[in-house]
Nucleic acid binder design. Structure first.
Length: 570
RNA sequence: CGGGGUGUAGCGCAGCCCGGUAGCGCGCCUGGUUUGGGACCAGGAUGUCGGAGGUUCGAAUCCUCUCACCCCGACCA
């Protein structure tokens, strides 16, 4: 592609509404343009990237035996009513009426449509298994779209759905997809990790998320460097401390802690480690009041907490409710002196503590030297309700956990029969008996991958695209293209030769000054650059610089094609 | 949804407190000089000052209402 025949729209300054690097760089590089909150136009340069990502996904899905189809973005409400999601889904589901006042939705996901297709087409176990997928635009009316393409409302997604005669076969396909996803992200050139995940609202049993590792990621991942354990922190189990509870050495004392409502402040005031404090969190389930206890340096895991049967669902108590049940303002509440009608749920770590500090249920006071059994009754329940932290023992018993951050770009689920049952997707088995199909579903956020790739690969000069998804693999920068016939000739000849070898090459024939060309080529993240200048040509050399290199190297003109070939395969 | 903030040229911003009919940098157009890391000189074009209403002789500026966008908040006892 010649730059003069293409459409480059780079910006020196990023629009002020962009917050994270990938968003700023995508705007500056002219990859996307905002049209509405969370809705973007993919400009020609950006579209090239998106298409490359799509193509890799498509090739690997096909290789894994899945078959591509395309479902509509607009879905009649009846299908969603059939599974009950019309009522359940909430305002994230964009609904509208057509001219006949019939209800429709813009699909945020396609379980209903695919299950409807499957039940119409599949009659016999002989037609199973079947895995259908599409790459299609979805719409989710996010509360707060942000981070550009990373949390947009409209986005491109690969979603696949598999149908099976039995659970064993679903598990086989699930493993197949686990492998396929690993191949896809490897081919995309991204550092990623597959982690065990919470199944969330979609339901089902097994589930893994695929995360692109990046410090700016929204999700925290717990993993064990000494084993293959990896899980979303929402799921990672916090084990009980191995050592038994220490014996108490202190007497309980009431100390004044005026204005110190946070555990950090209390620990600082009393010159105690944060891990000696206990924070009490008041929650409600219907009209029942509960007290949750966490060590001061730990944080509540709401996903785990919501799974406790007597707390599902729960909400945080209001200040007014705290005062009514505890007789004390929030900030100084604690478990000592609680009557039996307020159940105390302690995290495993709290149950092991001795001589700890907690609120005194009197404004401006905390208690020190508190001990279970002596100063208050043993906790009514002990559960794992906290987020694991760096250094916690790995749940697989093989070392200690590290925490890193990731961007979720893929998610695979064993749906089982949630949708097939609701929609009566049955088939006849070998004995002629009707059975409900087992289902799996597998998603990849195509647009989000572009953002995540940039989030993971950039520097102060711009984007550093992995070769596999770079809009162009190589750029030719001729210095003085219009002035020097020898430069122009050499550049044109090289351009044609590279094209002939199947390279995606951008020929910068804009007649810009070198600084402008270099800055643009670096900003948009082209991995390889060849600079041709009159000076070099006289010596028979051109210059090569890789996007991550700090300086250019001279390469004889005659060797440049071979040189690039080696660099690409390196 | 709650709290905060911002809307002025394609992009980044100033002007607003203290009303007098809009400016800077980048980009864009023309001409010239330049040509190995975002050139220089000269000339030029571009705004219903987010929208509606009000106050006033006069509103980007003051008041009311609206819309859009951004940030923070769902670990707080």
């Amino acid at each position: 592609m010649r730059a003069t025949q293409f459409f480059l729209a780079t910006l020196k300054e990023a629009p002020s509404d962009a917050e994270i690097v990938s968003h700023k760089l995508m705007l500056r590089a002219g990859l996307i343009k905002r049209v509405a909150g969370g809705v973007y136009t993919w400009m020609p340069l950006g579209l090239r990237i998106l298409r490359k990502v799509e193509q890799i996904i498509r090739e690997e899905m096909n290789r894994a035996g899945a078959i591509e189809l395309l479902m509509p973005a607009v879905i009649p409400a009846e299908l969603w009513q059939e599974t009950g999601r019309w009522e359940q889904y909430g305002p994230e589901l964009l609904r509208f009426k057509d001219r006949h006042q019939r209800n429709f939705v813009i699909g945020p996901t396609h379980e209903e449509v695919i299950t409807d297709a499957a039940r119409r087409e599949i009659k016999s176990y002989r037609q199973l298994p079947l895995h259908l997928y599409q790459i299609q635009t979805k719409f989710r009316d996010e509360i707060r779209p942000r981070f550009g393409v990373m949390r947009g409302r409209e986005f491109l997604m690969k979603d696949g759905y598999s149908f099976h005669a039995n659970y064993e076969d679903l598990q086989r396909e699930y493993r197949n997809m686990h492998d396929t996803y690993s191949r896809i992200f490897t081919r995309l050139g991204l550092r990623f990790r597959a982690v065990a995940a919470d199944t969330g609202s979609i339901g089902g049993t097994g589930s893994h998320e695929f995360h692109v590792l990046a410090d700016s990621g929204e999700d925290a991942i717990a993993f064990c460097p000494d084993s293959d354990y990896a899980a979303n922190v929402e799921l990672a189990e916090g084990l009980a401390p191995a050592s038994p509870r220490d014996g108490h050495t202190e007497q309980m004392k009431k100390v004044a802690t005026p204005g110190k409502t946070r555990c950090e402040d209390v620990a600082t005031l009393l010159r105690l480690p944060l891990a000696k404090t206990v924070k009490a969190i008041a929650v409600m389930h219907d009209e029942q009041f509960f007290l949750l206890l966490l060590r001061g340096d730990h944080t509540l895991n709401e996903v785990k907490t919501a799974k406790l049967p007597f707390l599902n669902p729960f909400r945080f108590a209001s200040d007014e409710e705290v005062e009514r049940h505890m007789g004390c303002r929030p900030g100084y509440i604690g478990p000592v002196g609680m009557t039996k009608d307020i159940p105390i749920i302690a995290d495993r770590a709290v149950a092991q503590m001795s001589d700890f500090v907690c609120g005194a249920n009197a404004a401006g006071f905390h208690l020190t030297g508190v001990n279970w059994g002596r100063d208050l009754r043993e906790p009514d329940y002990v559960f794992d309700i906290r987020n694991v932290v760096e250094g916690d023992p790995s749940p697989d018993g093989k070392g200690f956990l590290s925490i890193c951050r990731g961007i979720e770009v893929g998610h695979i689920f064993q749906l089982r029969t949630k949708y097939s049952e609701a929609m009566k997707a049955t088939f006849l088995d070998e004995s002629g008996q009707p059975k409900i199909m087992e289902m799996g579903c597998y998603g990849i956020g195509v647009t989000r991958i572009v953002g995540a790739a940039i989030e993971q690969n950039h520097d102060e000069r711009g984007i550093i695209f992995p070769c596999a998804i770079a809009p162009f693999e190589l750029a030719i920068a001729p210095v003085g293209y219009r002035k020097s016939q020898s430069v122009q000739d050499a550049a044109n000849r090289l351009y044609k030769e590279f094209l002939a070898t199947g390279l995606d090459v951008l020929m910068d024939d804009r007649d810009e000054r070198p600084g402008v060309m270099f800055a643009d080529i670096e900003l948009i993240g082209i991995p390889h650059r060849v600079t041709i200048g009159e000076r070099g040509l006289k010596e028979g050399v051109v210059e090569y610089q890789g996007r991550r290199d700090t300086a250019a190297v001279k390469v004889p003109l005659a060797d440049i094609r071979e040189y690039i070939r080696e660099r690409r395969s390196a």
